[in-house]
Amino acid sequence: MSRLTHSETHMVHRIGWLRAAVLGANDGLVSTASLVVGVAAAGSGRPEILIAGLAGLVAGAMSMAAGEYVSVSSQTDAEQADIARETKELAETPEEELNELTSIYLTRGLDEALARQVAVQLTKKDALGAHVRDELGISETVVAHPIQAALVSAATFSFGAVVPLIMAALSPTAQITSVVAVTTLVALAVLGGLGASVGGAGITKGAVRVTFWGALAMAATAVVGTVFGVAAG
């Protein structure tokens, strides 16, 4: 008898690295482009603009890496503490933990007899795994890893930041602001659409929300650069 295999592709397993990657690239584009636009609007020359942008790239990449590492490490520490507490409770009060697992399955729609049976069978096979998954809501599928998140954030930040720097280096000095702004908006739209597509969301919505906030950031820094540039002049 032939069997048809049912293959499914889900997006949830990408959450750990996708969030760090999209956040890193978006930050690299927006922060560096805004810095370049602000410095250019103040009337600075190309060398000053490029130095400021390069400094922003290095500082931003390191900051992103450190921030992601600390953030994900804190999350991991909290999860490990919960798992340790659950391990202790399973050893000290197994019957209460079994009742707790039964009640969880009751709230999910099973009748009392079946909920108890499921709880007993899962406890026999892997009591801690059942409680970690169904009571604590911790799943290996969506767990992010600190070093992975840090490296992905730093790399994608640098990748995003390179775009406005290249455009600033290649554009005529008088047109750096406009060229960097337009290029960055296009890149943000592509990034937002790509991130939404990989995550299984709407491409247009993802592109619009990223582009809007990028445009707002560059407009704000352009105003600041213009005001302080005029004041300094």
Results as ranks from 00 to 15, higher is better:
167 M>N: 05
189 A>N: 11
184 T>P: 06
199 G>S: 14
165 L>R: 04
193 G>W: 13
191 L>I: 07
179 V>T: 03
171 S>R: 02
186 V>S: 12
168 A>T: 04
190 V>C: 13
171 S>D: 00
185 L>K: 00
178 S>W: 11
174 A>G: 01
186 V>C: 14
198 V>A: 14
186 V>W: 11
171 S>M: 07
178 S>Q: 13
181 A>K: 01
163 V>A: 05
168 A>F: 06
187 A>H: 10
177 T>Y: 07
199 G>I: 04
163 V>D: 01
194 L>I: 07
167 M>L: 14
166 I>P: 08
167 M>P: 03
177 T>V: 15
180 V>A: 05
182 V>D: 06
191 L>R: 05
163 V>E: 00
204 T>I: 15
200 G>T: 07
182 V>F: 14
182 V>M: 11
196 A>V: 09
188 L>S: 09
183 T>Q: 03
181 A>R: 02
175 Q>Y: 13
205 K>T: 15
184 T>W: 01
202 G>W: 13
190 V>P: 09
200 G>W: 13
165 L>Q: 05
184 T>F: 09
168 A>S: 07
185 L>D: 04
169 A>S: 14
197 S>V: 12
166 I>S: 03
166 I>F: 09
187 A>S: 12
194 L>H: 06
196 A>S: 14
170 L>P: 10
180 V>Q: 01
193 G>V: 05
171 S>T: 07
201 A>T: 11
176 I>L: 04
196 A>T: 09
176 I>Y: 01
187 A>V: 02
167 M>D: 00
194 L>D: 01
203 I>P: 08
180 V>G: 04
199 G>C: 12
203 I>R: 09
163 V>N: 02
176 I>C: 07
187 A>Y: 07
185 L>E: 05
163 V>C: 03
183 T>Y: 06
196 A>Y: 06
172 P>N: 07
201 A>H: 14
201 A>I: 11
173 T>P: 04
181 A>L: 14
168 A>W: 00
193 G>D: 10
173 T>V: 15
188 L>V: 05
191 L>P: 10
190 V>A: 15
194 L>E: 00
166 I>C: 08
172 P>T: 00
200 G>K: 09
186 V>M: 11
185 L>S: 05
204 T>G: 15
163 V>G: 06
195 G>N: 12
192 G>N: 03
169 A>V: 05
182 V>A: 15
165 L>Y: 00
190 V>E: 08
194 L>G: 04
173 T>L: 13
175 Q>N: 14
204 T>E: 09
183 T>A: 11
195 G>E: 12
185 L>W: 04
163 V>L: 11
178 S>G: 10
174 A>N: 10
174 A>C: 02
173 T>N: 12
172 P>I: 01
202 G>Y: 12
187 A>C: 15
192 G>P: 05
167 M>Q: 03
194 L>C: 13
177 T>M: 10
202 G>F: 11
172 P>F: 06
175 Q>A: 15
192 G>D: 00
174 A>T: 02
165 L>P: 00
205 K>G: 13
204 T>P: 09
195 G>C: 10
197 S>Q: 14
191 L>C: 14
186 V>K: 11
201 A>N: 15
184 T>Q: 01
177 T>A: 15
181 A>W: 08
197 S>M: 13
193 G>P: 10
187 A>W: 04
